[in-house]
Simulated assay, not measured.
Amino acid sequence: MTAAQAAHAGARSEIREIPEGYRLDTPRAEDGSAIWRIARDSKVLDLNSSYSYLLWCRDFAATSVVARDAAGEPAAFLTGYLRPDRPDTLVVWQIAVDAAHRGRGLAAALLDGLTTRAVDELGVRHVETTITPDNTASKALFTSFAERHSVPVAHEVLFDAALFPEQGHEPEVLHLIGPFAAPPGTGR
């Protein structure tokens, strides 16, 4: 954690540190196949094409993050982007941890690390994500994230199940988290 991140984190309680043996990093195109594999093996995420993960690592690297293990390989990832019509809003697209690395707090560390960077460097004030009603792990992750940062979270159905072309898709519930305080001295 940089001095600026530490100063900003001091305003919030219990910011997750990256677990020992891992480091947060910006994704690179060569990480795309590992990220695709982690998403596929999660058995929970909607799997995008392998090509889309390569593009994500190129075009949205500034709003995404990977956790690398001691060998430098991706162990977890979070993909995100800034909403074009609300550039102060970070949308978390997908987050997943490789099965061999679960239970260490990596998902929370990714979420805290990227959000801290996005608030400090990009002026982000809100985080949004969608979660299906049956995804209890993601609901718990984002609820605890909001609690750690002492920010409100609101919920509303963004896409009703009837909008999806395949049968059985649950509605996507939008989780609106924030606002986050601007870093001290920025005037934002």
Rank of each mutant, 00 (worst) to 15 (best):
M1I: 07
M1P: 08
A3D: 01
E17I: 03
E17T: 10
Y22L: 13
Y22F: 15
R23K: 15
R28S: 04
D31Q: 05
S33C: 02
W36N: 00
R37I: 03
K43E: 14
D69L: 11
A70Q: 14
A71W: 06
G72D: 10
T79K: 05
L82P: 07
P84K: 01
D85N: 03
D85G: 03
L90I: 01
L90H: 01
V91W: 15
Q94H: 11
V97P: 12
V97C: 12
A100T: 06
G103A: 00
A107G: 14
A107S: 12
A109V: 01
L110C: 12
L111G: 11
D112K: 06
T116I: 06
G123E: 04
E128Y: 13
T130H: 02
T132I: 13
N135Q: 01
T136V: 13
S138P: 10
S138A: 15
S138T: 08
A140S: 08
F142D: 03
T143I: 08
F145L: 07
V151I: 08
P152H: 03
E156S: 15
A161M: 08
A162W: 04
L163C: 09
F164G: 10
Q167I: 11
E170A: 14
P171S: 13
P171C: 13
P171A: 10
H175L: 15
I177N: 04
I177H: 05
